[in-house]
Design a protein around this nucleic acid. Structure first.
Lengths: 163, 163
DNA sequence: TGAGATAGTTATACGGAATAACAATTGAAG
DNA sequence: CTTCAATTGTTATTCCGTATAACTATCTCA
């Protein structure tokens, strides 16, 4: 029953609120919970670092991927990032509006759009990569370089859980 | 450059679409990207395993935390889970509607609600823990037991990135 | 007693993500 | 060549998770 409110109530019980920290052990010992928390923390940190560049994680990954694979079809880039084609349209609209990327028509297949960075986009990606490297350095400071490599390897393996 | 369509067109060039896999190295070598992908994969796997119990990750963590800390205030549980108080109301509405948890009035402070599991909720948490253990076993199979422990430790450290 | 803080709640808005449906284009089979 | 199915990008729409402001009831403290 864990009855604890009973009887005399002798000494004054100064704090009305015992309020010790909660028992989180059921969550902190399974992978899913710290995984989610870490992802939120890393993305929050990312957003703080990239506030000046006004780049979200999704925008950064899109630009980086286009930069490394110019000329690829819109659906290829979206697919590689795990973004549904319909949702990727607004993403490209915005990157194009900001003059960072462009959708080119290709004679080979007039349905598709070949994506590429503009010079402005190339310059921004170069700056972004440096900012990103700073985050990576901070992560190494937190968990160590070797641990960082092992972490990436383990996380990559976990991806294979996908049905 | 990279001219490849020119001249003779000797042999047949069966595939119109070279379409080799994309260069993802700019993303796969930084922590943030595999971290996000792994989180999505683990949660997808979780949702598949918990489809029969109709429990989302957030619902599971809420029930598990209430079960380990019965009598705590609603705001304490919400805070520990990183859920804003307003958003936690609908969560509890649903858990209460399903008869899994309840909000008790406490004489000490009539503003707050002391959360607890119902017997039904206790039983469900017990089942859920077993299902969860199966996922953890699968994760160990993928990355190894030692690696799993190191992974949790590294992820927990990353949480300290939070400003 | 009264001012300010706290707990829970409501309403609301924003962004990410999923689905259906459509037009334009391509590829393949008859 | 014609026709039909598949592909590409797009629009519209929906759902869910999350953030914020504001309200009521209650508590604390001066």
């Amino acid at each position: 029953m864990a009855g604890r409110n009973a009887g005399a109530g002798a000494e004054v019980e100064t704090r009305r609120d015992p309020a010790g920290p909660l028992d989180m052990s059921a969550l902190t010992t399974i992978v899913g919970y710290p995984l989610r928390r870490a992802q939120l923390a890393v993305f929050d940190d990312f957003n703080r670092r990239f506030a000046a560049l006004a780049l979200s994680p999704a925008q950064f990954s899109t630009l980086a991927l286009i930069g490394a694979n110019p000329g690829r079809k819109q659906s290829e880039i979206a697919g590689a990032l795990g973004i549904q084609r319909p949702n990727f349209v607004a993403m490209m609209d915005e990157l194009e509006r900001r003059g960072l990327a462009e959708r080119l028509r290709t004679p080979a297949d007039r349905r598709s759009r070949a994506l590429a960075l503009t010079p402005t986009g190339e310059a921004l990606v170069a700056r972004a990569r440096r900012v990103q490297a700073e985050q990576e350095t901070e992560i190494e400071r937190l968990i160590g370089g070797t641990s960082r490599e092992l972490l990436i390897a383990a996380l990559t393996q976990l991806t294979r859980l996908a049905s």
